[in-house]
Every structure is written in C-alpha cells, then in structure tokens.
Amino acid sequence: MKDRAIIDVEQLSKTYQISDKDPGFKGTLKHFLSRKTFGVEAVKNVSFKIQPGEIVGFLGANGAGKTTILKMLCGLIYPSSGSIYVDGFNPAKRQNDFLKNITLVMGQKQQLIWDLPPMDSLQVNAAIYGLSESEATNRIKELSIMLELGEELYRPVRKLSLGQRMKTELLASLLHKPSVLFLDEPTLGLDVNAQARVRSFLSEYNRKTGATILLTSHYMADITALCSRVLCIHKGELFYDGGLNSLTNKLTPYRELRIELKDQFNPKEFENYGIIKTNTDRFIEIRILRTELPKVISRILERFEVIDIEIKDPPIEELIGKLFNQRRI
C-alpha cells in the first residue's frame, strides 16, 4: 500500500468498446453487415487518495463516470490503464481477503433472494463470509436495531416496500463488517423519511466502525449530510477534489438571510445591506456577501425589531449545476 491512504487511485482510465445503430430496417441491416465499434473513454486519468474513515461524495451528472470508477474500485470491472489500491489490494485480482473487506451497494439493485425472507439470504451471506452462528446473530441484531428493522426480516423480499428493501440490502451488504463501503445511489427512489434514515444509519456506521465510505448520489442532501469532502467528475475527468465547504465558498461568495420582523417595513431600508431576493409583509430574503455577514446582522438587529433570522447557503443543486457548466473552480 502506498502511504496511509486506504484508497489510492493513480491515472485511472477506462474505455468501453461500443457500436451505435441507426433506427429502422436499414439501420439494422447496416449494423448487422458492417458494424463499426469505437472506444468511449468513460474515465480519463483520474487520480485521488482517500484516508481511512473518510466519507467522500462523488458528484457528477449521469454518464459522468462515477459508477464506472466505483465498479473498478471494487474489482467488478477491469481498468484500461492506471493503478488502484484498496486497503493494500489490487481490486482486479479479486482476492478473497480483499472481497471480505469491501462492499458495494447499488440503489435499486438487489442481492437478496426475491421470493424468500431476507433472513435466508443473510444466512447465506454469513456462511460465505465465514461468520459463526453467534457472530451472525449478534451482527444481524446490531444492524437491524441501527436500521430499525424487525419483522421485515422474516417476510418475503417481494412483499417489502422499497425503503424496507433498501435497508435489508444495506444489512446484507454490511453483515461481514466491511471496512470500505462503495455506495452507488443508496437512497435512489426512497421517500424523504427513508432517505433520512439511511443517511443517519451511514453516519452512525461510520462513527462506530471507522469505515471508509465513498458514495455517489443525485440527492445533494445525502452529500451535504454525510460528506465533508467531494470529488467532482465530468465526462470521465476529475476536476475538483476538496472540501464541500470550500467548494461552496468558491462557487458562491454569498449567503442568504431570511428575516422575520415584528412590524411591516419599507424594503428600501434593506437595499444597503445586500441584494433583496423577496419581500412579503413582515418577511424579507436578502443575499449578502459572506465577508459582510456578521457586520450586517448586527446592524439589522440594532436597527429593526427582529423575531427570527435564518442564514442559509444557496441551494447546492444550483451550485453543482453551475460547476458542471464551468468545469472549473
């Protein structure tokens, strides 16, 4: 293993060979008789390191190459070039000691046997990973408490809701206590409550076990709740690797204030503090320079009778969208 990083990726690239087909009969004939295959570079010279215990978010639009990188990191697909070390192993070799230490969770993809209760699949996983009966029982109990699972473990998987299924999938994937978790859209399709439960579980799991987590998600709430560091990828190229806060700071030097006043006010009185976004009755939203924030708040509190004040960042989705368009920080 190179230095202390648990995940060490150097100049990683992956090219898929694909062939396009025109629509219709003519296209089919042409595709059959003279198929032309060409290489599509899904990942281009990506390098990064992740330290043990870190939770890192992978951001990128659909088809950016996030899932391809995750699949290479867990040894599911082979890189075209470059090197990967995960916990000191080359994932492509798929050694048992490596496989026992990692897990991959893919949202909406299942490993549990559809017609049987999750417990049957869990017993198979426990045997595959060499857990004794008592170890498996304790581990299932521990994880099911964290995931708020009970009788669902004894009902056929096909009878469970999407949220319950996702939680049982997480349980099955974490039964062997992996120290590296690759999560590909773990909250995909879940309702807001289920998303929040999965998030708090992952956070608690990381805190209790010190596991390293690399996750992709389209829900920014997942990233902001769990990750202090993000990797941004666009068309297979990594163009940002750093803190989520510094990403937000660099992208937007503003913060938003939502103020509730005791009495009605004249909006013009707020024009000197920043840019007014909305104002209705006793509520006003203004955008203020981050550097000016403490000074402006104290001035507003001195001048007006304030009932409530809320400070927030502009929506992260907006920032990320901007980032992908710019492809630079």
């Binding site: 699949k71 867990c74 040894g75 599911l76 048992n96 991959l104 490993q111």
Partner: peptide, 8 residues
C-alpha cells in the same frame, strides 16, 4: 455483480 464481489 453482487455475486462477483463475494468471496465465493
């Protein structure tokens, strides 16, 4: 895919 990343 999940079967391929299990030690079996």
């Amino acid at each position: 895919s999940p079967y391929l990343i299990q030690p079996l």
